[in-house]
């Protein structure tokens, strides 16, 4: 059961939340999915009002919801750039040029890791293993993945992002996996 509350959840979002709550024997199970919905409804991050609304809708204390949300890295507790670029630097990517990609992205964007551009278009962080190691170096931008990124084609990545539609933060659908190097995924698919 989803309670009435002030807030920003749309009709569609509320319908989805009601459906999700019905999947669980206890409404607690709906906390993570509700936070995903809230992140979408609030434009890609979870301001304090979003936490309060999720808490009210699920009948839980806001402190509990805040505690859960802040544990997980994909819930954005701060606003990020419209294109939030996460470069995997873990073991395989780190050995196959991820740090050169970061150097190049920092140069192109004029920012350092952990910063956003002044116009709010781009923010840049490193990521832990994205489990696309066969396509190292892998870059995640919202719902999109780019494989085979290197220092030479990093500028192409930025050009593609600049020209693209709004890149929504990860929600529950519409994923696109893209290869910066044409045919990269095809050539690595053997057998």
């Amino acid at each position: 059961m989803v309670a009435a509350s002030a807030g920003r959840f749309s009709e569609a979002g509320l319908a989805q939340l009601t459906e999700i709550v019905s999947h669980y024997p206890d409404p607690g199970g709906a906390i993570l999915p509700a936070l995903w919905l809230a992140q979408r409804e609030y434009g890609g991050w979870l301001p304090a009002e979003a936490i309060v609304e999720v808490a009210a809708r699920l009948g839980r204390p806001a402190s509990e919801i805040q505690g859960v949300a802040s544990f997980y890295t994909m819930y954005n507790m701060q606003q990020r750039g419209r294109h939030h670029i996460e470069v995997c630097t873990c073991l395989t990517c780190g050995c196959l040029g991820a740090y050169e990609v970061i150097d190049e992205l920092e140069r192109i964007l004029g920012i350092h890791l952990g910063q956003a551009t002044a116009d709010g278009e781009f923010s840049l962080t490193e990521a832990e293993c994205l489990n696309y190691c066969e396509a190292a170096t892998v870059v995640q931008v919202g719902e999109r993945y780019f494989g085979g990124v290197n220092a030479e084609n990093a500028a192409d990545l930025i050009a593609r992002l600049r020209g693209s539609e709004e890149c929504t933060p990860v929600s529950l659908s519409n994923a696109i996996v893209e290869a910066i190097v044409p045919g990269y995924f095809a050539s690595s698919a053997h057998g």
Partner: peptide, 10 residues
Amino acid sequence: RSHGPASVPG
């Protein structure tokens, strides 16, 4: 890049 975990603005 020893500032550790991937951080986000602010």
